[in-house]
């Protein structure tokens, strides 16, 4: 049994009379400690997968298991606790609190969980130890995304979920971010799921899940993932 598993998961949106099947029988599994990349064209259902996996959205039907728990059966309160203790999120547009310093943004997350990493240490990990007291507005896009990653990993989550984390970044900074995420999975054994529409990231991953039309059309296991520092695109 893999650490993360999706079995026949569907997600149907109703827009008036029209049904949109965002997920249409999604099946895949991810092992613990893997770096998984979900690829697919726009509208394939990648974000939906991630949102459901992260507990910020619920499936219409199907079975989702993370570790020993069935998150498709959780209620609102349980989902909140799941997000609080098990999941770290990184978004394309960072979603930092503009009014808090980098340190405070990380503290915002770490103060609410049981076993947090020290906020300054998390920022040190992402290489921002000298920017602790800067506000998001004073940081570049890449730096802000690194704060977002620090915020996510400070919670010591089992799952690190990233939705197009490099989407708004240039090549160099995008690469730095990928290196960080790979390090999280390789060195700390965290399960990392990265969404991208960029096929170039596939060689870095342990597992590549190709999504199309709400279905996982292909699942590749990569025995020898490349280091992110060697990535070219």
């Amino acid at each position: 049994m893999p650490f993360v598993s999706f079995e026949d998961v569907t997600k149907i949106y109703h827009m008036g009379d029209i049904e949109v099947r965002a997920l249409d029988g999604m099946n895949f599994g991810i092992e613990k400690g893997e770096l998984a990349v979900v690829v697919g064209p726009s509208g394939a259902g990648k974000t939906t997968v991630l949102n459901i996996l992260g507990g910020i959205d619920t499936p219409t039907s199907g079975k989702i298991q993370v570790g020993d728990t069935r998150i498709d059966q959780m209620n609102e309160r349980q989902l909140t606790q799941y997000r609080r203790h098990n999941v770290g999120f990184v978004f394309q547009f960072y979603n930092l609190m503009p009014n808090l310093t980098a340190l405070e943004n990380v503290e915002l997350a770490s103060q609410i969980c049981d076993n947090p990493m020290d906020a300054a240490e998390a920022l040190d990990l992402v290489g921002l130890s000298d920017r602790l007291n800067n506000f998001p507005g004073q940081l570049s896009g890449g730096e802000q995304q690194r704060v977002a990653i620090a915020r996510a990993i400070a919670k010591n989550p089992d799952l690190l979920l990233c939705d197009e984390p490099t989407g708004a970044l240039d090549y160099e900074t995008g690469k730095t971010v990928m290196e960080l995420l790979q390090a999280e999975s390789m060195r700390r054994g965290r399960t990392v799921v990265i969404i991208t529409h960029n096929q170039a990231f596939c060689p870095v991953a342990n597992r590549v899940i190709s999504v199309h039309g709400g279905k996982a059309v292909k699942e590749d296991v990569n025995e020898n993932p490349k280091s992110a520092s060697t990535l070219v695109w």
Binding site: T80, R84, N95, L108, I112
Partner: peptide, 16 residues
């Protein structure tokens, strides 16, 4: 709204 949503994603309970 965005801030509130961010807090929820981080796992803040309603009271928080």
């Amino acid at each position: 709204r965005r801030e509130i949503a961010s807090l929820k994603v981080l796992g803040f309970v309603p009271r928080e």
